[in-house]
């Protein structure tokens, strides 16, 4: 009998937890014992209502947790959105049966922000990859994976939703393979050029002199609407760029970052290094506006050049 402990930190894991719970394989959910976020509180509330046992993950010591897992006869561990490095004692406890779900086609996009960087790089599909947990983050052998299409209009929230919907299928696939002892572990390539590091503030600011139209479009949707929102500067103030679209422009000799059109129908259009871009949705402290209304309200005129 397989009995799972599910390590997580947010509601996006609910579909997988539900699957394990309904299939009678869930022993407990392990949550971080730290300052609760609204998302974590919502998860705790749901777990409590569903009568699911929760254990606390102590950030400095595993002793109590290991004892509780043992008392519940837990023999399988599944990690998703846990955001904490698991210590060796816990890895040893599961004897190779502690697995992590990483939303990227590993070894690409190892790191804490895989979906953000895949969207920002304009990937048109991703994978949910289930791999063994080792002391090296996101580097363990792979048991199985599941491909997910990324629509060109998807924002990070859209992809997170798709991933959440796909989780039960991947978990079910893994459980069935495990049940039949049919898991074949595949080694990952050691290196990949594509990584998913923490997003620095400077990386969120549009660089009109370096970024192509498509890169800014992807940057905007990767951060819509999340902490990693794309930003642009106008008159010493930062504004959020929540959505942008590529448009054609035959203009030559006009500096990238220059406003080339303000029009009620065609919107607010900015010259880029390889064409032009329409700023569709802009977030400000005064509210959210389309590009045209933003330009009229904030006095952004054709011919004006935005800073980097």
């Amino acid at each position: 009998m397989k009995k799972y402990a599910f390590f997580t930190g947010g509601c996006q894991s609910l579909t997988a937890i539900q699957y394990l719970h309904q299939s009678g394989q869930l022993a407990c959910v392990v949550l971080v014992d730290a300052q609760p976020t609204p998302d974590l509180m919502q998860l705790q509330h749901w777990l409590q209502q569903s009568g699911i046992k929760t254990l606390a993950y102590n950030l400095s010591d595993d002793t109590d947790l290991l004892s509780q897992l043992d008392s519940l006869a837990v023999n399988r561990g599944l990690i998703y959105l846990f955001r904490h490095k698991v210590r060796p004692a816990l890895i040893q406890y599961f004897s190779g049966h502690l697995v992590n779900i990483h939303p990227s086609p590993l070894p690409d996009y190892r790191g804490p922000f895989p979906l953000y960087w895949q969207l920002r790089n304009g990937e048109d599909k991703t994978k949910l990859t289930l791999h063994q947990v080792t002391e090296l983050l996101d580097c363990g052998d792979i048991a199985t994976d599941l491909e997910i299409e990324i629509h060109p209009f998807d924002t990070i929230s859209c992809v997170q939703y798709k991933v959440a919907q796909a989780l039960p299928e991947l978990v079910a696939k893994y459980c069935q393979l495990d049940e039949k002892q049919g898991i074949t572990w595949h080694k990952q390539d050691e290196k990949s050029d594509k990584t998913a590091p923490q997003v620095e503030q400077q990386q969120l600011i549009v660089n009109w002199h370096k970024q192509t139209s498509k890169q800014v479009v992807n940057m905007a949707r990767a951060g819509n609407a999340d902490a990693g929102c794309a930003l642009f500067q106008f008159r010493q103030e930062m504004f959020q760029l929540l959505q942008a679209s590529v448009v054609e422009s035959p203009l030559i000799g006009v500096q990238a970052g220059t406003v080339i059109e303000v029009d009620r129908h065609t919107g607010l259009v900015i010259k880029t290094i390889n064409g032009a871009l329409r700023l569709d949705v802009i977030g400000t402290q005064q509210g959210v506006f389309d590009g045209y209304r933003f330009a009229v309200l904030f006095g952004l005129e054709a011919g004006f050049t935005l800073n980097n």
Partner: peptide, 9 residues
């Protein structure tokens, strides 16, 4: 309004 505010390069 469209005609009133249209400006472009």
């Amino acid at each position: 309004q469209a005609l009133l505010t249209r400006q472009y390069v």
